[in-house]
Amino acid sequence: MKNRANSSKRPSQSGDASPPAGFFPKWLNINVAIQDVGFFLVGLIAALVVGWIIFPAVLYSKQAQPINFNHALHLNPDKVDGIEGEKKEEKCSFCHEFREDGTFAGIPRLAKCTECHEDPGSPLGETPEEKDLMTRYVATDQQIPWLVYSKQPDCVYFSHIAHVNMGKIACDTCHGDFAGNEKLPLYLENRLTGYSINIWGKRISGFYWNKKPSDRMKMDDCAECHTQMGQEQNNACFVCHK
């Protein structure tokens, strides 16, 4: 005891049973080492829990959309008449339209809804969502404050028409398949940046084995796709950051 205490230059504080002498090098106080590793692991595991579980849970706030819009219902010709278009893209752009000057309107304004849902007094269906639309927005002529899953920072210039018309990229390639959704997904807003989780991607690690374009919408993803499509020249800074 005395020898070991001397060799470690630090008195052992426990009087527990020890492995036989000579098993470990003399300079190693095994009890202390076990303790060190133990505490190291405590810190490590705590950090892993914080980094992988708590941080993502705290980072995003959950917000419901103002109205639970039913894409599947609207795109079902048996139930809703008037969404014109042969191909899926044409149907999408019936509401998510391109303006005359080629700019993209994005999420439709109330005026688009009232093309059909014009009279607050006579709803077209029987859903509570439509009632909500009529009383809260159509009757008061207020814009619906939609939360936009794919909203990018203002410093990013993105042209839809270049991708959809010239690049022939289908809407759901980047946005995922909304057409079959009966409910809008929960909107997870990054508390720091104010943007949706869809930009960084639902996986907090940011890594995917078989990444689809709809998984993430960060700058690297844009660049990766440009390169794959042989449009590397479009990775120059000023193409998007005007």
């Binding site: 810190g43 595991i45 705590a46 950090a47 941080f55």
Partner: peptide, 15 residues
Amino acid sequence: ATVVGGVAGIQVTPL
């Protein structure tokens, strides 16, 4: 030791 463990651990998280 805990702090070193924590610091080491956080490197292998996305945080």
